[in-house]
Design a protein around this nucleic acid. Sequence first.
DNA 1: CAAGTGACATGTCATCGGGCGGCC
DNA 2: GGCCGCCCGATGACATGTCACTTG
Length: 579
Amino acid sequence: MHLQQLPSPSAVSDKPASADYVFTHIVAAGDTLENEPPLKRLSTGMRNPSNALDYVSAARDDRESADKCDLPESSQARVDFAFSSAMFAYSGQPLPALPPLSGPYMTPHPVISNGPYNGLSYAYSQQYGQTYPNTAVYPGKAQVYLCNRALWFKFHRHQTEMIVTKQGRRMFPFLSVSVAGLDPTCHYNIVVDVILSDPNHWRFQGGKWIPCGKADTNVTGNRVYMHPDSPNTGAHWMRQEISFGKLKLTNNKGASSNSTQMIVLQSLHKYQPRVHVIEINKSGEEETSDPDRVQTFTFPETQFITVTAYQNTDITQLKIDHNPFAKGFRDNYDKSYSGSDADRLTPTLGGSPQSQMLPGSQYAMTSTLFQEQFVNSYTKSCFPTLTPDPGLATSNQSQESSLASGQHWLVSSTAAPLYETDINTAALLSYATAGVKGLPFTGGTSTSLDYYTSSAGWDSQGSLENSSKTSSILPGWVLDAGLERSTRSNYMPEDGDRLEIDRSALGVSKELEGEDATDSTWTETQSSIKSVDSRISEEAQLKNPSISPVSDVQTAKDMQNRVKNGIKESDFFHFDTQT
DNA sequence: CAAGTGACATGTCATCGGGCGGCC
DNA sequence: GGCCGCCCGATGACATGTCACTTG
């Protein structure tokens, strides 16, 4: 498995990847695009100020998560660092060659060669500092958004642990992503693999995870899990969340031969899952030899240590609290959750991966998950300000040394007067989280940003103060369907008054909030859904005759069902149907 | 002694079949 | 009356963390 060469911490330390840094450079990048002619509108969802509120809350929750971190400061730094980069979805890295993705999906454990994921995340953030030429949209460039990122963060700040058993154990949280930027008619495989994220063997001692010896990198076994819907069209993948809830982790090396559902890992090692989007050719085969057809996405917050029994009781409690299958272990379940299901912070009905994938029930999952993720965002009145440390290290050891020398990321709460500014920053960043899919790094230029920034869907007259900068650089993003819907329709605030306060703080009026700017789009599109899907199906069939178009027919049915259920297409990924 | 294994209690979820109502 | 679709409860498979025991 090849990993993209990333700048060393020292090489990039003069441009720390703090939220403010990213903010500044997004604006800078946007400025270069401001006067460019807009491309066709892809989605109108972001024009709705209430959406903006949701995204602000998302960002606030994320920052709060980092603020609440009770890890040692070195760990805190790691979380903050991941946070700052994770504000954006990650863009694919075309890989020159991917041994695990060809053939039998067997490989020795690779290790991220550039130290822990910090280097990765830093590199991602760094890319936002460049100026992007305004070029045409290339729908083949994928962008991936981690849907349940806030949940991952809750675990990540305690150092996520994943149980491995002989028979295989599901991951929790599991990977759930949204994809954008695919060619709706092309066929893709969506694949997850897991790689060692550092070269250490880990041990839990004194309430902390400490490196203990070298990792065993010679272990072989199935390292790759292909999504059961694969292969499928870009339209299919972009239409809904892609969940990997059935992915199982095992320490049984013999499991590779009899199960493609399981990934073989070693206990007490630190791993990093990755998502691969692989375009397949007309004969239905992956073209892993063509780097442009394989894109890899890494989410640092999904890193975990494998265990055979939980070590950190905080993790155990988080699992019990959030995994619906573990409800039986909630001692004070009746007391804690005596309210309605909607008041709960934990996923319930939608806990199964199926519920994420089935059109009818997918929102049960996204709603509960995103309730869970956003519910706390209204309970905090100020944000931490991320202060980057130029000397941030990328290994745990160096993090510790930097901590010892007083060099670490600082997290401080801002005073009330900064609130307004922070909201705008948070809003900007959260928009990026929700809509601006990451930028490809290869070649030093990007078309993805152009794709999103030039499509002019965001109403620059939006009610967010000081949003002119935002609107100039963040127009017409493809909205994450699950995010929007779950936050807008299913969010159940713990405290309605608090919500009101936050609305006013944002300058979002109730009238505007109730206004659904997507309706008009829906009206235009609604009647043509079937024909559009048919066209996609036909075109996909033409492009790839070896693959049955059944899924697309089913997709059309799904869409019709959604119409029946009153779900607007604009709640989903909206690709251009005018061409 | 730390790590791994398997049984266990509890809860979730998918599936199946019966009951019911609408339609031809 | 037959067919079909929908709803609902029963059931078994499966997922969960815990705990006692085994292993190295």
